[in-house]
């Protein structure tokens, strides 16, 4: 076996080539390619003036000083139906929190039929042309935004809600 001084130039050159690649791969493979960043966390929640399904005007400014939970949902979304019973119960557990639903990429009439059948415990907003969803950076449903009493987005939850998520972000009722 040959022994002797290692070729340091070759060693350093090789490391310079390999190390950036290893770092790049380690970081890249550690990411979920479908994940989208929650860029609005900590930012002021975009204001809106919309009409709910009963025809009443609803504005985010109406709820200044109160935490708001805004849930984007649709009738064609399976996980939305899974979380619906939890959201029906939630306002009674968290009476100081404002709950709002936003019908996402769906027909308002279908949403009305669904809510008549499954129940509704808070206003559901109609989002014409999906502008509100764009302003909030919605990428799919269900997505739920926890807006703090100062009007900033505290947390965005993707997927069906669980009681643990509500307790974690709204505190004990």
């Amino acid at each position: 076996m040959a022994t002797g001084r290692p070729n340091y130039k070759l060693l350093v050159g090789g490391l310079l080539l390999v190390v950036p690649f290893v770092i790049l791969l380690a970081v890249s493979f550690g990411r979920d390619p479908r994940a989208t960043p929650d860029a609005l966390n900590g930012q002021p929640a975009p204001a809106f003036d919309l009409i709910d399904m009963d025809g009443n005007p609803v504005s985010l400014a109406d709820f200044q000083g109160k935490p708001v939970v805004m849930n984007f949902w649709s009738t064609w979304c399976g996980p939305c139906k899974i979380e619906h019973p939890l959201l029906l119960e939630a306002p009674s557990h968290f009476p100081n929190v404002v709950f709002l639903g936003v019908v996402y990429q769906d027909d308002a009439a279908k949403a009305r039929v669904y809510l008549d059948r499954a129940g509704s415990a808070y206003p559901h907003l109609v989002d014409p042309a999906g502008r509100l969803a764009v302003d909030y950076g919605v990428t799919g449903v269900p997505e739920t935004y926890f807006i703090d009493a100062e009007g900033n987005i505290a947390y965005k939850h993707k997927g069906a809600l669980s009681p643990g998520v509500l307790y974690e972000h709204l505190g004990q009722p």
Binding site: V27, T36, P37, D38, A39, L40, Q43, V134, G137, T139
Partner: peptide
Amino acid sequence: FIGRYGEWVLLAPRATGF
């Protein structure tokens, strides 16, 4: 749009950071 979806929303990422 970056403010809503992050830098990810750009098809050609900017030459900043990572």
